[in-house]
Design a protein around this nucleic acid. Structure first.
Lengths: 146, 146
DNA sequence: TTCTAAATGAGACTGAATTGCACTTGCAGT
DNA sequence: ACTGCAAGTGCAATTCAGTCTCATTTAGAA
């Protein structure tokens, strides 16, 4: 949404004890500029297309560091590639509807489901840390076209 | 649970238009004998340990065929390997709690969550086909030991 | 028993992700 | 600003799950 400038991005990185390298700033900037869920290769290609010199290894290592600092979320849509999205803070949890036709991703959050999850964990003496919920199917647009 | 004999397993395969090869029978028998969620490599090694000659390619191809026939479910626990479990029929849907310490998997089913999922899909004009829900955390035993 | 489409085995191959190592750079301390 | 060096990067080699090719074998119908 808001286009944070490089200074802000650098500060964000430093606040999380990460060196503010040009590669990391460019990567964060890219993720900030989109609502899409890119995979590592797409991020690599986008950065290259934007005249940034980055290697794949750096993309992977930077993403790992950003995920570790909770600045970025790593998503597994079950197709063999991990996706990444900027996380909007600690309390930004949401789950995903994924269109099997066009690949579109719709985010959602449901308090009732979250509550039930906690209840289920309690029933099983289980202490939850994270959870993921994916609903696959067909989005409205693809349904019309189909 | 019940130990179906080879004859039954062969019939099951034939009912699903799959040739009842020794490899497939052995694979089904293995899955039937456990509540664990093996990955392909574990299945391959178990079959080999049981003096069955099977190749990795056959394990993968057989699992694919069995999943296609809904005799087996393919599960993605997000660690880069797919797990497989015998499915107990069309209406056997359940989700999973996964212990991050010991790897134990607890199955659960919650009608309220299922209902909410349907509601969410309707709100978004989304037609669901399948869904997965994983809750990661620490199981009761590991919590005690921790 | 014979025939043949389907299935298998062995190993080459793919694609995402990781690693080793030499080189570069952000930045803290002067 | 300059310097030192740990942290970060680039490249290429490697790993690892899974897929594919193709020659050989086999289930099961005729």
């Amino acid at each position: 949404m808001q286009a944070a400038n490089n200074r802000t991005l650098k500060n964000t990185l430093r606040e999380h004890e990460l060196k503010a390298t040009t590669q990391r700033v460019a990567l964060l900037k890219l993720l900030e500029s989109t609502q899409e869920h890119f995979d590592a290769e797409e991020i690599y290609l986008q950065l290259r297309a934007g005249q940034k010199n980055v290697s794949r290894a750096t993309v992977y290592r930077s993403l790992e560091a950003l995920v570790e600092q909770c600045l970025v979320s790593k998503l597994d849509f079950g197709d063999g590639r991990m996706r990444y999205e900027l996380s909007r803070g600690e309390d930004d949890h949401h789950d995903h509807l994924i269109c099997e036709i066009c690949g579109k991703v719709i985010e959602f959050f449901n308090l009732e489901i979250e509550a039930q999850q906690i209840a289920i964990c309690q029933e099983n003496g289980f202490t939850p840390s994270t959870h993921t919920m994916l609903i696959f199917g067909t989005c409205a647009e693809c349904r019309k076209l189909g």
